[in-house]
């Protein structure tokens, strides 16, 4: 079932710069989609159309069949949660718990539900000990997790994450990967804008490659990542695990998804199933 649809969307900024040209894209319910491409390719501009922050100059964007031009960002945001790249652009409350409460209050949630979701979210993201602290004193990684917590607290159907791994250490990235898996298992539609192909590779999302404001490829990550020429055009590198896989004389039927699989294969244990 199509949840989000871009129909021949073009967008020109007020400065006159064309950011999107004739983009058509359909995203189904429960899909995990990663959008990659060079800086200025139009990735962030594209996702800002989903909750109506930007309205297309030409074409239309439909969310659950409704044109984003005919509804407000606040209404769309109840369904589409966007976590922006820079957490400092949204944190303002005097405490972490009030920061998480903010959106739920805006959406008119009852106090009981707010308290329930607040507890769950803070525990889930490991922020419970900072409940009463100012969000401004948190570390970069904690702020990033807090912005995610703020989004997931109101349980939107679509979760859009703009560069979620920027400024995260290896452990946080691993945690983030686990959060994605959990979100995938709950049937959420996830859209990730990222340059971090190493992070995206194990998740195996549908991959949308953008370049110069256009969608230049759309398909399974394993297929697209094999096309070096295309990737070079969009300034995207292949994941190291795929490069390792391609360099092996004897290799399994499908590429490695994590280092342990690769280690086992190279170490001669060959435990990777031949077909996934």
């Amino acid at each position: 079932m199509t949840l989000i649809e871009f129909r021949n969307v073009s967008f020109v900024h007020q400065t006159g710069v064309t950011a999107l040209t004739d983009v058509s894209l359909s995203i189904g319910k429960g899909e995990t989609v990663a959008i990659v491409g060079e800086n200025g390719a139009g990735k962030t501009t594209l996702v800002r159309h989903i909750n109506g922050l930007l309205k297309p100059t030409k074409g239309s964007v439909l969310v659950e069949g409704k044109d984003t031009r005919e509804t407000t960002t606040a209404t769309l945001s109840r369904k589409v949660g966007i976590a922006f790249q820079n957490p400092d652009h949204q944190l303002f409350s005097e405490s972490v718990e009030n920061e998480v409460r903010f959106a739920m209050k805006n959406f008119g949630f009852g106090e009981d539900l707010i308290a329930q979701r607040l507890d769950w979210t803070l525990k889930f993201f490991g922020l419970d000990q900072y409940r009463k602290s100012s969000p401004l004193v948190l570390s970069g990684g904690e702020k990033k997790r807090l912005t995610l917590a703020c989004i997931l607290a109101w349980d939107p159907d679509v979760v859009v994450l703009d560069e979620p791994t920027v400024g995260q250490d290896a452990l946080q990235k691993e945690k983030l990967g686990q959060i994605f898996k959990l979100l995938q298992s709950t049937g959420k539609t996830i859209i990730i804008v990222s340059h971090d192909v190493e992070f995206l590779w194990p998740i195996q999302p549908r991959l949308v490659v953008m370049s110069g404001g256009k969608v230049v490829a759309d398909g399974q990550i394993s297929q697209i990542m094999g096309n070096r020429e295309l990737l070079e055009g969009a300034r995207v590198t292949q994941p190291q695990l795929l490069r390792l896989y391609q360099g092996l004389a004897s290799r399994p039927a499908t590429p490695f998804l994590d280092v342990l699989e690769a280690r086992d294969w190279i170490g001669g244990r060959k435990q990777k199933p031949e077909a996934r």
């Binding site: 800002r48 909750n51 922050l53 407000t72 960002t73 606040a74 945001s77 109840r78 589409v80 949660g81 966007i82 922006f84 820079n86 652009h89 949204q90 903010f102 959106a103 805006n106 959406f107 703020c150 109101w154």
Partner: peptide, 16 residues
């Protein structure tokens, strides 16, 4: 630019 991005972030959290 910062102000616009902040406004967008808050609008995305249901602020009208």
């Amino acid at each position: 630019l910062d102000a616009f991005q902040i406004m967008d972030a808050q609008k995305s959290r249901g602020l009208e």
